[in-house]
Simulated scan of single mutants.
Amino acid sequence: MSTNKTLTLMEEMAVFAKVVETGSFSEVARQMGSTPSAISRSVARLERAMGIRLLERTTRKLRLSESGQLVYERCVDMVNAAQSVMAVSNQLSPEPQGLIRVSVPKAVGRFVIHPHIAEFLNRYPKIDVQLRLEDRYVDLIDEQIDLAMRISNHPSPGLMGRPLFTIEHLLCATPEYLAREGTPVQPSDLKAHNCIYLGEEPSDSQWKFHKENKKVTVGVQGRYAVNHTGARLDAVLSNMGIASLPFFTARQMLQQGQIVQVLPDWTFRTQYCGQVWVLYTPTRYLAPKFSAFINFMAERLSHEPTLASSLGK
């Protein structure tokens, strides 16, 4: 295929890649402000030019042919290369600008990141932020996410980024609840208490502790399980029991004395403990808007004393 013909088909290649990613002509048409028939014709032009079938069409879904899979991978490389070119232009822009799509775990986003967004937008009037609060693994490329914050001491080697802060968890209850039900002295005492946990997986009710060289796992139970840290805090304040909370959620109520830490001599561990990293796909040129966001949050969070606890973990 000649260079000139290849250049005229680059738009069709990009459209084809988008159709594969979304699995729908209609969705691509909606995103591009076109029509499903126009998108279908675009893919058909690419198929005719290459002389191969790229998609197997049925009344319900689209499926890549064997040749289509190879072509799709090359088309994705082309789109990524074009995005790298735009990143260079952004690098040379005198002022950070454009949209940033950021995926953040729900509690971290609501209690840690969101409170700083207004100041960030005021400082950078040409940057827009789309903050997505979601407790699931996000594929940055497939879901068009620019930056992802993940709780991990060992982030994916396929991504680049930097640590922002550390999440510590602790057990909390109100003085009223403890006066009524008793204060646990050791982890095994929790078996006699109403414990408020996530309830998403069986392991959520297996609370893990360590103290010096001693490690203990306690199977807890309770009448209420809820997978939102703010809701668990509300349940604690309602004297419903003992809950696991990240320190950044509990700190204000701890400081006011409305709740107290339970088993402060023990370190409480969950899969939601550890460093919070801001990650992005590897690139030689990090756009100024991304650098601005990362540096701003790193600076703000480094001076925020409420993210780590001196009371215990």
Rank of each mutant, 00 (worst) to 15 (best):
Q83F: 05
E95F: 08
S89C: 01
Q91N: 10
N80I: 14
A82N: 07
P94Y: 01
I100A: 04
R74P: 02
S93E: 08
L92T: 11
C75H: 02
Q83V: 03
E95P: 00
V79K: 00
S103F: 01
Q83I: 04
V79H: 00
A81D: 05
S89K: 05
P105R: 05
N90G: 14
A107R: 07
S103Y: 02
P105F: 06
V102N: 11
R74S: 11
V79P: 01
M86G: 10
V79N: 01
E95Q: 14
S103I: 00
V108I: 12
V102T: 13
E95R: 11
S93Q: 09
A81P: 00
A82V: 07
N90C: 11
N80Y: 12
A87K: 11
V108W: 05
V104F: 02
P105V: 08
Q97S: 15
Q91Y: 10
S103E: 00
R74C: 09
P94T: 06
Q83L: 08
A82Y: 04
N80D: 15
A87V: 07
R101E: 07
Q83K: 14
V85A: 05
N80Q: 15
A107W: 01
A81M: 06
S93F: 03
S84G: 12
Q91H: 08
V102A: 13
A107L: 05
S93V: 02
V108K: 06
A87E: 10
A81W: 09
M86F: 12
M86W: 10
I100G: 00
I100R: 00
P96Y: 07
Q83W: 07
A87G: 07
S93I: 01
V85S: 04
L92W: 10
A87I: 07
S84W: 06
I100N: 00
E95G: 01
R101H: 10
R101M: 04
S89A: 00
V76G: 03
D77C: 08
A82T: 00
C75I: 00
S84L: 11
E95C: 07
N90H: 14
L99G: 09
R74I: 12
R74E: 13
S103A: 14
Q83A: 14
V88D: 06
V108G: 04
R101T: 13
A107I: 02
L99M: 14
V79G: 03
V85E: 03
V76Q: 08
D77Q: 14
